[in-house]
């Protein structure tokens, strides 16, 4: 449950993730996971030109009056609204919080209409041959296909996720087919963007994993320690994290990397690095897309968070068009 200051959605680009984590600790702001809950959109860091449409969609989901703040970011062409925030974290937090009440609203960039023409059959798209209803607004009826896990045939659902999901590395885009919450196929469209040095500390890498395990307060404590001194050994903090039982909560043998490690052992390695005050040992994911197939959504998110952003980037030749499909 969100606590704190002005609710803000941060659309993070490149070279800024550590700074965004520092922004999270500012009491004037609460970073939220969805633009629906945000009063201000903060666009932070280097933006890929190809992410313009995704950014415009996020902007359109804010409620009115919309307010956008650009922080350490270059504006893509066409985005001539919003205001620039000061560079420093504390000044930026005060500035962003003030925008919540000062904005006079911004027009959306996209058409507020259906994504495709209506090609449905019947008044609600329920008519036609076998009541299949044609393709209303470009979306045919979801059909069942074979399931990878237990043979229970569920409706397959395909969608593109990213690049601004706050629970994923910024910039990562994947086309995914899901049945229930089990991933059936993955195509990695874009690799994550390179980030600042702070984001590569074991503190912040563990913090990203802890948030996925619903331990946001401890994650904040890790970020605080990293901001104070990332090179200092933090054995007490590592012990506090271990005592939550997070290693037992992570399934064993989840996503084996090329040297045989799994999510649990990579996390244990990060905890060791944290208590010794050194960087974590490197790992090579191998074929990342193949690794995610058959996993549940939550497990897949844990797998992504168990590698450093540089390791993920190394595993994906960007712009990769790697296709991996499960056995049908």
């Amino acid at each position: 449950m969100a606590v704190g200051g002005t609710p803000v959605f941060v659309a993070a680009g490149g070279g800024v993730l550590g700074a965004v984590e520092a922004l999270r600790l500012e009491p004037a702001l609460t970073l939220v996971a969805t633009p629906r809950a945000a009063q201000v959109l903060v666009v932070a860091g280097e933006q890929r030109p190809s992410d313009r449409i995704a950014l415009a969609r996020i902007h359109a989901q804010l409620f009115e009056p919309r307010a956008t703040v650009w922080w350490r970011a270059d504006r893509p062409s066409g985005f001539d609204f919003g205001t620039g925030a000061p560079e420093s974290v504390s000044d930026a937090a005060a500035f962003i919080s003030a925008q919540a009440t000062q904005s006079e609203g911004e027009a959306i960039l996209l058409d507020d209409g259906p994504p495709n023409p209506w090609e449905g059959v019947g008044p609600y798209g329920q008519g036609g041959n076998g009541m299949m209803g044609g393709t209303p607004y470009g979306r045919p009826m979801a059909m069942t296909t074979d399931d990878l896990r237990d043979g229970l045939a569920l409706d397959a659902y395909s969608a593109t996720f990213g690049p601004y999901l706050t629970q994923w590395p910024p910039g990562l885009i994947m086309e995914t087919t899901l049945q229930g919450d089990v991933i059936q196929s993955v195509r990695i469209v874009e690799a994550p963007l390179a980030q600042d040095l702070l984001a590569a500390t074991p503190h912040l890498e563990l913090a990203r994993l802890l948030r996925l395990l619903e331990l946001p307060a401890l994650a904040d404590r890790l970020v605080r320690a990293a901001l104070a001194d990332p090179a200092r050994a933090a054995a007490g903090l590592a012990r506090a994290v271990r005592w939550t039982g997070l290693l037992a909560a992570i399934p064993s043998a989840l996503a084996r990397d090329e040297s045989g490690g799994d999510v649990r052992s990579r996390t244990a390695g990060r905890l060791d690095a944290l208590s010794a005050g050194r960087p974590a040992d490197p790992a090579a994911p191998g074929d990342l897309a193949a690794m995610l197939i058959g996993l549940e959504w939550h497990e897949a998110a844990l797998v992504l968070a168990s590698f450093s952003i540089d390791e993920l980037r190394g595993a994906i030749a960007s712009p990769a068009v790697r296709m991996a499909k499960g056995a049908a």
Partner: peptide, 10 residues
Amino acid sequence: HLLPRMPVSR
């Protein structure tokens, strides 16, 4: 605030 959440199948 003290206990982690396991993945669903676990």
